[in-house]
Structure formats: structure tokens, C-alpha cells
Simulated scan of single mutants.
Amino acid sequence: MRHITVGDTAPAFTLQDQYGQDTTLPRGGPALLVFYPLAFSGICSGELADLKENHAGFEELGVTVLAVSVDSTFALRTWSDREDFPFALLSDFWPHGATAQAYGVFDPERGVARRGTFLIDSEGAVVWSVLTPTGRARDVTEYLERARALNG
């Protein structure tokens, strides 16, 4: 399965966030879309903690951060309340993994999203993407560097 890459149009979606609110991929402003396997897991917890720690930098650049997993909204709410994440955790629970599939990052053998990261410009074009192997954490500072480059 081919994942979405630079130059592709980011597939539109509407998913529920950790509060049960519909959230749509924003147009008109850049977005960082971060797919991760599961809430509460070791590497994912570290990655989202890094995103939280660096969230102000994304806000300054006008970048909306959206984190997506196949977890239920209930699990995401519990995790978000515990960790106080300042960004939306989106549930790709049902149809199971449909958004991850649209982006080419769904792992059908494990039933979870792989570690796909996409920076999307205000027109909806993917300007940077990376697929990080399972078991390896992503570098959030690279996300910020790419977002700064997007803003010039």
C-alpha cells in the first residue's frame, strides 16, 4: 500500500476528537497530521509528550496539530485528560482505520495506524511526509523545522 507523499492532495476527513466533536482536516491553514498506533503505548506516549512540549511552536506558526489513532473516543479522552494534550486526538475507530487507509498508513495485520506524519499546506497539498518504522520514535524537532520552512 502506497502512503500519501509530497505533492499529493491530502485526503479530506471528518473524525471525532477526544471530546466527541467532529473535526475536519482544516483548509486555509497548515496542518500537521500525526498517525500513531495506540494510546497509552510507550513510544506513542513519548511522541505525543514531545508534541505537547513543542505545541506552542506550532501555534506560533499557525499549524494545527492533529493526532490520529484507531482508539475509541473514550480511550482518547481518558488519555488526553491524564496527559493534558493541547491538540486534538482523533478517533479513526469506525469504520476501523478508514482514514489511515486513505493515507496509506494502516497496518492490516496489526489493525492499527503506522507512524505516518504529514505536513499539509493551506491548499491541502502534502508538502512533507515520512513513514517511521514501527518501534522507532519520531523526532518532533524535525516537524517544527519543516513547519518553519513552510512559513518561509
Rank of each mutant, 00 (worst) to 15 (best):
R2E: 15
H3T: 13
I4A: 06
T5R: 14
V6R: 13
V6H: 09
D8Y: 08
T9I: 13
A10E: 13
P11L: 10
P11S: 04
A12I: 06
Q16T: 09
Q18I: 10
Q18S: 08
Q21A: 14
T23E: 10
G29K: 13
L32Y: 04
V34C: 03
Y36I: 07
A39H: 00
A39K: 01
F40A: 09
F40K: 03
F40C: 10
S41Q: 06
G42T: 09
G42P: 06
G42S: 04
G42N: 02
C44I: 06
S45W: 00
G46K: 00
E47F: 01
L48K: 02
A49R: 14
D50E: 09
K52H: 05
K52Q: 01
K52W: 00
H55L: 03
H55C: 02
A56F: 01
G57E: 06
G57M: 04
G57I: 11
E59C: 02
E60Q: 11
G62L: 03
G62S: 06
T64E: 08
A67M: 07
V70I: 15
V70S: 07
D71L: 05
D71S: 10
T73D: 09
T73M: 06
F74I: 09
A75E: 11
A75L: 12
A75Y: 01
L76T: 03
L76H: 12
R77L: 11
T78D: 00
T78S: 11
W79E: 00
S80F: 11
D81Y: 11
D81G: 08
R82Y: 00
R82C: 06
E83S: 03
D84L: 04
P86R: 00
L90M: 12
S91R: 14
S91C: 13
F93A: 02
W94F: 10
P95W: 08
H96M: 12
H96P: 07
Q101C: 10
Q101K: 15
D107W: 08
P108V: 04
P108F: 07
E109D: 09
A113W: 07
R114H: 10
G116A: 10
I120S: 05
S122W: 10
S122G: 15
G124T: 04
G124W: 13
V126A: 07
W128A: 15
W128I: 07
W128D: 07
V130H: 14
T132E: 05
P133Y: 03
R136W: 08
A137D: 12
V140F: 02
E142T: 15
E142F: 06
E142C: 03
Y143M: 04
R146A: 14
R146S: 03
R148P: 01
L150G: 02
L150H: 04
G152R: 15
